[in-house]
């Protein structure tokens, strides 16, 4: 892929943090380079603490790289923060619903921030709740919803602003397997339908292979230790091989 076509592009990105005890720096991301094309879903796998979330936060514009170049739609997501208003949707590991807002109002949040006409925002929010099987729960507060329903609301909130890019940080990890499987299928269908570019962080190999067009496995600190392209053309045997390769890569002891 040429750099021009890439929607998300990292070139030698490094991120260091000061250790809380003041004893030097901690490298979370180490000269990380990759590109993601429009409409591509990339699953990122790695052990806990490998820097996946730091990479995620850099793409989201919430964290500034210490060195290297991170570009999203050709722009710097941290410095050009305002430019990305409405262009990036995020689904977090926990639902992060505002407890004082009803399901409908939570979905409407991004639209309100984007100054969408109130009537239109309400219609969009209602439509997304319905699409995700939450019709009739519009006025329910988060505490009255199950974990799966709350995560559906957070997915609806991310999709409602119709972003070009979706960032998902282990969004189904706190749900039971049945609910997670249903939501995964729904999520992939929605992303494919709308041809969005997505980064999907997970620590489950099966989930990564089910969702991603491509899988990237990170070692600690975040750098690509293994990469494989998936998709319909890949045979079952090849998928099994990739699965085994990923397990082997993840099994390698990584320095803390």
């Amino acid at each position: 892929m040429s750099g021009v076509d890439a929607v998300i592009r990292f070139k030698d990105v490094t991120k260091t943090f000061k250790r809380p005890d003041g004893r030097g720096d901690f490298v979370a991301v180490d000269r990380l380079s990759f590109e993601i094309a429009k409409g591509e879903i990339v699953a990122v796998l790695g052990k806990t603490g490998c820097g996946k979330s730091t990479m995620f936060n850099i793409v989201a514009g919430l964290v500034q790289p210490s060195s290297g170049e991170a570009k999203v739609i050709g722009r710097d997501p941290f410095r050009e923060f305002e430019f990305f208003r409405g262009k990036v949707g995020i689904v977090f590991q926990n639902d992060r619903l505002m407890p004082w807002r009803s399901a409908l109002d939570n979905v409407r949040l991004g639209l309100q921030i984007l100054d969408t006409d109130p009537m239109e925002a309400e219609d969009i929010a209602r439509a997304w709740l319905k699409r995700l099987g939450l019709a009739g729960h519009d006025n329910d507060y988060p505490h009255a919803l199950s974990g799966g329903m709350r995560q559906r609301v957070s997915i609806a909130r991310a999709f409602a602003v119709n972003p070009e890019i979706l960032l998902c940080d282990e969004p189904f990890s706190s749900l039971d397997e049945m609910t997670a499987r249903d939501l995964r299928a729904e999520f992939v269908r929605l992303v494919r339908q709308s041809n969005k570019t997505a980064i999907f962080i997970t620590h489950q190999i099966n989930e990564a292979m089910e969702i991603g067009d491509r899988v990237m496995v990170f070692h600690r600190p975040a750098r690509i230790a293994y990469e494989a392209t998936l998709g319909a053309a890949v045979t079952e045997d090849a998928r099994r091989g990739i699965n085994e390769d990923i397990m082997r890569v993840l099994a390698v002891e990584q320095p803390r």
Binding site: A60, R85, I90, F92, R96, L109, I113
Partner: peptide
């Protein structure tokens, strides 16, 4: 902090941040 990051992900103006969060 979670709600702050979630709201910031939508790139709110200062007024929106004050009003909604």
């Amino acid at each position: 902090k979670d709600l702050f990051e979630m709201t910031m992900a939508f790139r709110p103006s200062r007024w929106s941040l004050f009003r909604f969060l």
